[in-house]
Design a protein around this nucleic acid. Sequence first.
DNA 1: ATGTTATTGTTAGCCTACTAACTATATGGT
DNA 2: ACCATATAGTTAGTAGGCTAACAATAACAT
Lengths: 138, 138
Amino acid sequence: MIDDEIRELLDKISVQMRRNYADMLRELNLHVGQDQMLCRLWREDGVTQNQLCERLNCEPPTITNMLRTLESYGLVYRKKDDSDGRVSRVYLTTKGRELYEPVELIWKKQQEKLLEGILPEERLMLRRLMKQMAENII
Amino acid sequence: MIDDEIRELLDKISVQMRRNYADMLRELNLHVGQDQMLCRLWREDGVTQNQLCERLNCEPPTITNMLRTLESYGLVYRKKDDSDGRVSRVYLTTKGRELYEPVELIWKKQQEKLLEGILPEERLMLRRLMKQMAENII
DNA sequence: ATGTTATTGTTAGCCTACTAACTATATGGT
DNA sequence: ACCATATAGTTAGTAGGCTAACAATAACAT
């Protein structure tokens, strides 16, 4: 069945993408997932952990643990909010900010590789169908 | 850029698919990834751990650990090969074999959800493009 | 026959990611 | 003012996935 194949291909691509990212990010001393976290922070700094949960679509303990690691790497720091003692806001250090370009290079490399031999009009179609799938599975 | 968007969508879909699988598999007391391992074994039993590495595209320690867990669940057992003392072969138990149908149901549900509103001819196109991407990133 | 090399799998340690149970702070009702 | 409830993060414990270092067996060369 075509549908089975599409799901299996998606699984396969996910696994392989993850492996490729892992290999490339290792040279920057990063793990897969951490790049996504940094990406959110490059877009917007000083955000709460709760907001990071929503935007990265993962659970609070994942955020806590990942931030502890990134903090120990010196890429990030946390500061208690002044008006609400429960929330802590997350900021990038200079070192964290400097990782933007090398990580973006990795993403660019991966997407070039991914889309090799796929024509511009096919890419448009692909984006449309993938947007649909992304909405479907939420 | 379209290319960025496609990569990002793929990342997003991967993460969400994983979450969905996790939620559904939990009801069978399985974790994401274990279903892939079982899938391989449903297709072919008595295979070596090395072969599982290749087919699941992951590293030996991952196999060792996952098999230990699945063994503790009583879904799988290992037996030393007669002719080669280094290799151990992996077999399904009855309990492990019985999980095939419920897991397949989960996959079917997920792929239906995934492809909702996508026309048959679009699915054909999608499969073709995804095959291409899968080959590209190996 | 013996020592070197290759292959198979394991162990230790790191990381993301999850649930369940918890702490600490805010808020809202009476 | 006080107590119940909601919200934000943390801790403990489980599991997949990885690398690096290791043990055990097999194969090969001399």
